[in-house]
């Protein structure tokens, strides 16, 4: 009865209030579940940022007399807290510096492929017609080429190195974003507010950036989070195939690949970087799952 008597304005007001409350509740629930993951990720990011100050030793300094030392050994006054690798380098320092490489590769390749893929996908979904045909066929073409092939070609033509690893990863992964952005844009392009904006003379760029991008961001962030873990794993696989970041630069993937030969005798070489890599990928993937639930209206 009281609700019926209340003026319509108040009703809208309270509905808005309720929506806001629900949104806040969802955010709180998300954070309450995500904080351990965010803590792990922050720790890894901090390690990467401050690697030179945290690492006890030079990650590149070899000591052929102190190879394959077990964790806690001391050789010539150098304490190997996590042991030493196949060239007598301090594993702890390499693991800390390795965070830089792994994060840098993953972040830059996700950003690059995300930006390229989203742009192309939105264009295809909004403009339709021949841009749509060309772009979507191009995604099919790129999805059909083995990533390893592109990696080898990039290394052979452009030369090896960190930048090229990122390029290869971006080159092979942009179609994922393009497809998601395309499908979402397609669904939105006839939404009333987009039509209104177009009617009022909004330019394509304006509409894409102001009206469409903010609304498809959620889906894209979920893809990017899940892709992030894949990028870390992919960089590791490239190292295993000898096409990754150049030695002696420490990357978790390369350390893990080198450590495979020592699993039975010097487990620490692969287990410590492997554990870090595992934590990073796991945390990102779980975060991706949480974000997916967070953005999924059916699960609210």
């Amino acid at each position: 009865m009281t609700a019926a008597l209340a003026p319509p304005q108040d009703e809208a007001q309270s509905e808005l209030q309720a929506l806001k409350r629900a949104a806040r509740a969802r955010r709180v629930r998300f954070l309450s579940r995500a904080w351990p993951l965010l803590a792990i990720l922050s720790a890894l990011v901090l390690a990467a940022l401050f690697a030179p100050w945290i690492a006890p030793n030079d990650p590149l300094r070899q000591n052929l007399m102190g190879r394959l030392q077990a964790p806690g050994s001391e050789v010539r006054g150098v304490l190997y807290l996590l042991g030493s690798d196949e060239l007598g380098r301090d594993l702890l320092s390499r693991v800390i510096h390795g965070a830089r490489v792994s994060l840098l590769v993953a972040i830059s390749s996700v950003l690059l492929s995300g930006v390229v893929g989203t742009t192309l996908g939105m264009i295809a979904g909004y403009l339709r017609g021949w841009p749509e045909r060309i772009i979507m066929r191009l995604t099919d073409v790129f999805l059909s080429i083995p990533a390893i092939l592109l990696a080898i070609i990039a290394v052979a033509v452009l030369g090896p190195g960190l930048v090229n690893v990122v390029l290869v990863l971006a080159l092979t992964r942009w179609p994922r974003y393009a497809r998601v952005a395309y499908a979402q844009t397609l669904a939105l392009s006839n939404a009333p507010y987009v039509r209104l904006s177009r009617f009022m003379g909004g330019g394509t760029v304006h509409i894409l950036l102001r009206h469409i991008l903010p609304n498809i961001m959620g889906a894209l962030i979920v893809v990017a989070t899940l892709e992030f873990g894949l990028m870390v794993l992919f960089e590791a696989s490239l190292s295993f195939l000898g096409l990754g970041v150049q030695p002696p630069t420490p990357s978790w993937g390369a350390m893990l690949a080198a450590g495979r030969d020592y699993v039975a005798t010097a487990w620490w070489i692969s287990v410590f970087p492997g554990f870090c890599l595992f934590l990073l990928v796991l945390a990102m993937n779980l975060l991706g799952d949480l974000l997916r639930d967070h953005f999924d209206p059916r699960l609210r």
Binding site: Q62, P247, A258
Partner: peptide, 30 residues
Amino acid sequence: TSPVYDQRVVQAIQQMLTDAGFNASIEMTD
């Protein structure tokens, strides 16, 4: 260098050159 070769040796050589004062970096290719 290429993955066929023992990368432990290549990395050790790079270290020796660095110790001598050279500015050498490993370039891996297939």
